[in-house]
Nucleic acid binder design. Structure first.
Lengths: 330, 330
DNA sequence: ATGAAAGCGCTAACAT
DNA sequence: ATGTTAGCGCTTTCAT
């Protein structure tokens, strides 16, 4: 920048004004503007955003902390966050926690140090303390997909309880009586709500059987899900339907149902919480719950941007999911 | 930092030395070190990485430009890149091009301005010019999954041609004679190699029939793939197998094969180029090609880091993919 | 063993 | 309409 100024015999300040688009305001003459722009192009000058950030105090970047970018749900979520942020002229730094507290803590620290202008995060079990630090430093924050009840901050999540209850109602209406639920044992509201929504409805209809509720340990999901499927298969009182509380659990469950020769839908109905891109490779009918991922991501960014721009209110949104059906051909 | 220095009556420089772990070198006394560390913790001081970057000239971040983070392949790739970068203490900024040149150009410009210490990118059709700028600015660069033949830079890709040819050989060996290929018409080496690998082998065996090679337009893939499936179904000379050149094409193809009542594997064999997480929801046997995504991502980071650390050689790797089988139960 | 000071590249307030 | 200057928070060289 100094180079440009020198060669043109003008000052660095003037060059800065032109190059950061503040030339209009009647401040710099068109002639100078032209010359500066032209020379900048010739020298192929690129502004140094780091230096700019240091002076302005804004990094024009936001941090996103998710569980695992290779997971289809978070991949989609991140995609929409990134595309939305792009519209605002913001850059996105993503990090994975792999559902681990230590990685979550590291991620927050790094983003804080990098002076991201705001943070969107998917809470991890036990992360309240470090999350409070974000707030203490007055860095705009939005929780997504889950939230810490003990923390007073913005969040945007899906109404897991409601849609799960609705799904259970629907299963019962269709004549299912013995309904099983397979869910991780992780103590996060998103998952617990899904399970509880089912259980409450089953109870209302006097159809609740604790033996049909399976809590799966995340680390040993393969074995535990397999075990659950076998139990359901051998249950003397025939199981009518299985509600799988998340994508991965559903995939694994289907695998072992196939292995056990269970005719899905004919013998046992299944439900998947989440839409999977590749449902169509299986020609089997079942219901699934589609979350409004695009809304989730875009709105998270919108809320964050409002906070970055000085708005001081806390926004807590509960979005509605949809029950949909993957149909069978023929 | 100045605050800490003032309160302790030492200089900013000393504090800097301690806090950036350079206290040892016999430079700062243990006593001062202690005091500085303690006070920093009390005041809960966070270093400003932006300022640090400005002085050191290293941003400790790398940029990653991919097609679309919501795509399972790129989600996985990005995951491994991020995890590897984390090990090196680097932060990752990701952006999606959506396979569009304008977005690709924007992405490169943004990363260059942000002073990322290196860039890993998935080339987009026509992006040679801006990619040259990265090189002109001496920013370390690694291409992944694809590469620009006209550009002399590092890359790491999968040997698409070889594995596709091998797959075709295998199909023929198993007795398939009429083998179809469904592939996007995008002019990127990764895709063209997959198609060509098949075609060359078919030709060698005198089994090549141009009518069975379908070039699919990316924008109208649904309709075009459907049309292709119908054609195959109605082909008077029975089609034995279909090689789908990528994940999305496979999923869509399977959908329409189901719709048309084609018995997959029994009537027509299928092959999917790429592994899909949720194959197991379908109890259908078929072969697929698994790319070494983890290697791809990790090695890309390793190569980049070597360059960042001053190594000047260009590394071009061709990794081997694997043929695997999704088995059917019973 | 520690202090002082320059400077990274830019912006913004103030002069002129 | 444009020049000057201070300073963002840190590292690093050179003195002391």
């Amino acid at each position: 920048m100094q180079d440009i100024a020198d060669k043109l015999g003008v000052s660095k300040g003037t060059v800065s004004l032109v190059l950061s688009g503040k030339a209009k305001s009647g401040r710099v003459s068109d002639e100078t503007s032209q010359k500066v722009r032209q020379l900048a192009a010739e020298m192929n000058y690129y502004p140094n955003e780091i230096a700019r950030s240091l002076t302005t105090g804004k990094s024009m970047s936001i941090g996103v902390i998710i569980t695992d970018i290779s997971n289809e749900f978070f991949g989609n979520l991140t995609f929409h966050i990134q595309e939305r942020a792009k519209k605002y002229g913001y850059t996105v730094i993503t990090t994975n926690t792999n559902e681990r507290l230590d990685e979550f803590n590291d991620a927050v620290t790094i983003l804080l140090n990098r002076q991201t202008d705001g943070i969107i995060l998917v809470p991890v079990d036990g992360g309240e303390e470090i999350t409070q630090r974000i707030i203490a430093r007055h860095i705009p924050l939005v929780q997504v997909d889950r939230f810490y009840p003990a923390i007073n901050a913005s969040y945007i999540i899906v109404d897991n309880y409601k849609i799960s209850a609705k799904m259970a109602e629907m299963l019962i209406e269709k004549g299912n009586r013995r309904i099983a639920v397979v869910c991780y044992d992780i103590k996060l509201n998103a998952l617990m709500d899904r399970k509880q929504g089912c259980i409450d409805v089953l109870n209302q209809h006097n159809l609740f059987d604790p033996a049909l509720i399976k809590d799966i340990n995340y680390e040993q999901q393969e074995e535990e899900i397999y075990k659950a499927i076998i139990e359901f298969k051998n249950n003397p009182d025939k199981v009518d339907a299985i509600f799988f509380c998340s994508r991965r659990v559903f995939i694994t469950g289907m695998k072992y149902m196939h292995k056990e020769g269970i005719k899905i839908s004919e013998e046992i109905d299944v439900v998947c919480f989440d839409k999977i891109d590749s449902f169509s490779i299986a020609n089997i009918p079942f219901n699934f719950i589609e979350q409004p991922i695009k809304d989730l991501g875009e709105k998270a960014v919108d809320i964050l941007m409002n906070q970055i721009n000085g708005e001081n209110t806390i926004n807590q949104y509960l979005l509605e999911a949809q029950i949909r059906r993957h149909a069978q051909y023929e």
